Simulated scan of single mutants.
Amino acid sequence: MRLEWIDDILAVLDCGSLAQAAEKRGITQSAFTRRVRTIEDSIGTTLFDRRRKPVTLMPGVQTLEPEMRELSARLHKLGHMLKTASSQRGKPLTFVCQHALTTTISPRIVRAATRDGELSVRVHSGNQDDCLMQLLSKEVDLAIMYALPQEPETEISRAFESVDLGEDCLIPVCAPSLCDKASCAAIPIIAYPADVFLGQVFTQMIGPRLPIGAATLPIAETALTLAMLQLALSAIGIAWLPLSLVSQSLSRGDLVRLDDALPAQTLDIKMVRLRTTQTERRETIWQHLATELSPFSKNENLLTESRGIIE
């Protein structure tokens, strides 16, 4: 059974006539009629009831319509996959973004990677530990993550190599109605869990720099920056969020920044991969992305872009 035969049968079923099916299939009616006869002769049975208008499948064949549609879809997909596997596109590029970066950065990565139309991309999302584990297990080709500026190299980090893509800033923000809470002795906050990267940044870099005598009062806790953004917009508490993520909310006045009263922390954005031998094609892709995306300041620096809107 040929794929084109299945598509011919479905064309007649969809169009209701041999003439319209022939037009849909891009051949003359006489040629299409002969092809339908060939299909029936090859299978050894009559498939269409030509006495009825519109033309329909014979009752016994009608029940096979779902299977034919599924088989057609699967064979077309298989053909596309075989074509892709033997073409320049090859294996898709797979990368993972730290949750906080998925919304803001991944569209730029995909746009840069697929600009020439010869590469498809798969995007994963996870916390920083997930990103590193997916790199180590070779589930992904590269990762986009935050890092503290001038962070000392560790035994684990020596397994990776990275390219700087620019910088972001973790800033305190809140709904306008909570502005006065920044000066309270007990500051109501939306907290990150202590075991996630941004929670560690808060504990190590922000907490020690809070105003003298001030303490934080966690009202809610989440590891997801998008969830924290919604909690901040709902006036639950003060949140430390990436400037890249909240720039639009700040420009609309839905949130206000509090880094004049509370500490903020600059974060580097890095593209990371395993420090191992790369195929020529993967090396070309890495170099292409490094050129296109690093640094963002050439085109879309996150801090400059956001401050340009706000100030």
Rank of each mutant, 00 (worst) to 15 (best):
S247D: 08
V246H: 03
G16P: 02
P208Y: 13
L274S: 11
A159V: 07
W240E: 03
I238N: 06
W240T: 03
E40C: 00
G44C: 05
P188W: 10
W5H: 08
C174L: 06
E139H: 13
F160C: 01
E70T: 00
P176R: 04
K181R: 14
Q278W: 08
T276Q: 15
K53Q: 15
L13A: 04
T46N: 06
S137A: 09
R252C: 08
L57I: 01
L241K: 04
R158W: 09
I238V: 08
R37L: 12
A11P: 09
L165E: 00
M228I: 00
L47G: 00
T154W: 14
R51V: 08
S251F: 11
D195F: 05
A186I: 02
S120R: 08
L132C: 00
A11W: 03
Q20D: 15
A261E: 15
W240K: 01
F296W: 08
V163D: 10
D14R: 15
L231F: 10
I171Q: 06
P59V: 05
A185N: 08
L258N: 03
P92K: 04
S294I: 04
L165I: 01
A31K: 05
P295N: 11
D195C: 03
R52S: 03
T33C: 12
S249N: 14
K270W: 12
E280F: 03
R257W: 10
G253S: 07
L57F: 07
F202G: 02
T216K: 00
I310D: 12
L233R: 14
L274P: 07
Y146W: 10
H288Y: 12
L224F: 10
P211G: 01
V246K: 09
M205Y: 13
D129Y: 13
S42R: 14
C184I: 00
L78C: 05
L178F: 04
A235M: 03
V110G: 01
S247W: 04
I309E: 15
D49P: 07
L3W: 09
I190H: 09
A186Y: 11
A143H: 12
L243C: 09
S251Y: 14
D168N: 13
F202Q: 04
A239W: 13
Q278I: 03
E118K: 12
T45R: 13
I43R: 06
L170W: 07
I219R: 05
V256W: 08
E40Y: 09
A223R: 05
Q98R: 07
S177Y: 00
S183F: 02
L245K: 09
L57S: 02
S244G: 13
V96C: 11
P295W: 15
R50K: 14
S106L: 06
M145P: 01
G237D: 06
S177R: 02
R50D: 03
V272W: 08
I144Y: 11
D141S: 07
E167Y: 13
V121T: 12
G253H: 10
P54G: 00
D168L: 05
I238H: 07
Q134N: 12
S120Q: 15
S162H: 10
V12T: 05
T104M: 09
C184R: 02
S247P: 00
L78R: 15
M228H: 00
P92V: 11
I285Q: 11
E311L: 12
Q98H: 12
R252F: 14
Q278Y: 01
A185R: 13
A113G: 12
T38W: 07
I27S: 12
L293F: 12
K24W: 05
V140G: 02
E292K: 12
I187Q: 04
T279I: 03
T46E: 14
G117H: 11
K298A: 01
E23R: 05
E167C: 10
